[in-house]
Design a protein around this nucleic acid. Sequence first.
DNA 1: CGAGCGATTGAAAAGACTCAACCACCGTGG
DNA 2: CCACGGTGGTTGAGTCTTTTCAATCGCTCG
Lengths: 229, 229
Amino acid sequence: MPDKSHRHVTCETCKSRQSSLFGSFCDDEVEGLDSKKTCSYYKKNQPLFIEGSLPRGVFCLNSGKVKIFARGEEGKEQIIHLAADGEIVGFRAMFSGEPYKVSATTLEECNICFIGKSDFLDLVDTNPTLRNGIMKELSTELADRATFITNMAQKSVRERLAFSLILLQDIYKEEMINLTREDLANFVGTATETLIRLLKDFKEEDLIQTHARKIEILDKEGLLRVSGA
Amino acid sequence: MPDKSHRHVTCETCKSRQSSLFGSFCDDEVEGLDSKKTCSYYKKNQPLFIEGSLPRGVFCLNSGKVKIFARGEEGKEQIIHLAADGEIVGFRAMFSGEPYKVSATTLEECNICFIGKSDFLDLVDTNPTLRNGIMKELSTELADRATFITNMAQKSVRERLAFSLILLQDIYKEEMINLTREDLANFVGTATETLIRLLKDFKEEDLIQTHARKIEILDKEGLLRVSGA
DNA sequence: CGAGCGATTGAAAAGACTCAACCACCGTGG
DNA sequence: CCACGGTGGTTGAGTCTTTTCAATCGCTCG
């Protein structure tokens, strides 16, 4: 658990930068980046942006996790993506010229830097490596979403949950998965009650173990088998 | 119903080009494009590319429709997108550096041009307008898929079918929707039998009418209402 | 004419959802 | 310090949607 308080982050020393789209920046570029960004602390459950508003820039996650979600007719959230440190959030809407179609909210306390729209677009225009990285990122994500759609359409909730747990473990790395049951249900695409029942099943099958809300994966192979992947 | 036979298409006179990503090309650029592309005729149900293979270039639809789909565990198709004339297909995998995650197959007889990978990437590198168009396209599609995922997760099959019919009508323009029941089911994300039953319901509610396999929309507003959009 | 595919229907079973109630934990204010 | 309220988690029961399996029909093609 990192720092609980606001802290200024410099791009030079940012651990997350190296694995991000800015990872290839040379010293000069990093300096330029650093001079343009602002850095702030976010509490848990604080929105970065909401559906329908106009993008003003991009968010660079230094620490903490953020959920990206859309809302269905009845207002129910569908979590499309969980972003972790090192990720840059909100750059997709930057190119579409349209308002955000999704919202982003912190799941934990976060340190997040912000780069204004024009600064960011300048960077993209002048830096081919960054640009290629972004195009690659967009394309990869498009492919991921095709798989996501297919899973939604063809897999049972049980299969999807197993698969989701594996995905989430990759995002949470060493930590245990730590989401409200509702968020987890909104990620899997099911009702909260159904989710809880299935978690119980998985516990009885010794696939997972829960520590209060946290979920520990005991048998990744087993989950993979259940997921039908 | 256009030409039934192979026909050479020139970019200069290509009706579909104007509404495509190449729409902003000047005469010189069009000429260059024309010299690089090859043009061929595809029969119905002929693959453009298959999941797992490596992208060799992009396909430019001059006439006819193409389905883009992924396959689930049991091999069931999930149609992610239907492409019509004017669309460029297969450029997403061009940037990801990975094999195709989806397949593309013609739904009708098609005239399709092909541009090799290096030629296409050269164009993208040297033409900022094209590049921006592509980034915009990628971003927009990413947003569309977020909506798609949400619909899959939260809407009933009945709602999804209503919504799908409206989407398909936009793709088929003046023509009637003309898909096998199975393809339609794979687009909506349901079983063929369920789809057929729901179509019957819609017919009884005077929302649609069928002419053999073709579907005519009688009450778009009504469908929209059913779709819960 | 027979084979085979696509479309359709019926009946039964399974999977999920909804609704309602209840529990457990936590922080607050008295 | 403790009662209170609220949020998040859990359970049960009943219902509805959707799937599955099996069978039938119609049409086209060789």
